[in-house]
């Protein structure tokens, strides 16, 4: 059994789930909202091994050992029930649930695209300052990045509003999907995904008159529909065969 984990609002992930199922994968859609009301959670960790099991609202019990692969697009635990938590405990409750999800997702031994990290359950989010450095190391052209104390902190985790996105590429392992790119740009994209240790990575480009391929942002949760059927085929292979990372 394979799982597609995502929010009910994540349309690209649900498109991928439908197409992976159509490609013959026995894949279940498990939303963050279903996990929020799941019961019978049991997560064991000891010196040798670990395990996870839980019951979905329809009564189906999921055992980690039965999961063969996961398309992981969980950004955060769903928070529909947080309103029932006394206000002074809400932050704590969310931190507890986030810490729990990080652990049980990490305990899965099957292929996960992407593996969870403390900086993002569906893969690490990088700040623009880090992306600027890594893009240069990867061989991609990028603008310089500047930050002062007057900048809003949240601005560092989204594309600069000054840059118009002109193309998007998705890297899955060593495959390039989405926009057709010159080979040097494709190599840079693969290098960047390796440097960021992110198996499935969306990379946004902007263009100038001098250079049509200037890096502007990278995300572990790209719009999968941009990759089309080729991405679905590759994703199905990755989930079935695992591959390496």
């Amino acid at each position: 059994m394979y799982l597609a984990l995502c929010s009910t609002l994540d349309i690209p992930a649900q498109w991928a789930w439908q197409n992976l199922a159509a490609a013959g994968l026995d894949i279940r859609l498990v939303t963050a909202e279903m996990l929020e009301v799941a019961t019978q959670w049991e997560h064991h960790v000891d010196s040798r091994t670990d395990s996870i099991s839980f019951a979905l609202p329809n009564g189906q019990v999921i055992h980690g050992a039965d999961i063969q692969g996961v398309l992981n697009r969980l950004m955060t635990p769903a928070q529909n029930l947080m309103g029932r938590v006394v206000p002074t405990d809400r932050d704590y409750a969310l931190q507890e649930m986030s810490a729990f999800y990080l652990s049980w997702l990490n305990s899965l031994r099957c292929p996960l695209v992407n593996r969870p990290t403390p900086q993002g359950l569906a893969g690490r989010w990088f700040h623009l300052s880090e992306l600027s450095l890594f893009a240069h190391q990867a061989g991609l052209a990028s603008f310089s990045y500047r930050q002062t104390g007057n900048a809003a902190p949240e601005a560092g985790y989204q594309p600069s509003p000054d840059l118009q996105k002109t193309a998007q590429v998705i890297v899955l392992d060593d495959g390039i999907f989405g926009a057709t790119v010159p080979s040097a740009v494709g190599d840079g994209c693969r290098n960047l995904a390796r440097l960021l240790q992110t198996r499935l990575l969306g990379i946004d480009f902007t263009s100038t008159l001098q250079d049509p391929w200037i890096f502007c942002f990278a995300s572990p949760v790209p719009d999968l529909q941009l990759g089309g059927v080729r991405l679905i085929e590759s994703l199905a292979r990755t989930l079935r065969n695992g591959g390496t990372q």
């Binding site: 019961t39 959670w41 049991e42 931190q95 986030s98 810490a99």
Partner: peptide, 26 residues
């Protein structure tokens, strides 16, 4: 360190024992 059971999974890779742990809603 934001998730103790996650960190325990990293710790045991370095040859340390970690205590038997159960996280449950049951």
């Amino acid at each position: 360190n934001s998730s103790k059971p996650y960190q325990a999974q990293l710790i045991r890779e370095h040859g340390f024992l970690v205590p038997e742990t159960l996280i449950t809603s049951n």
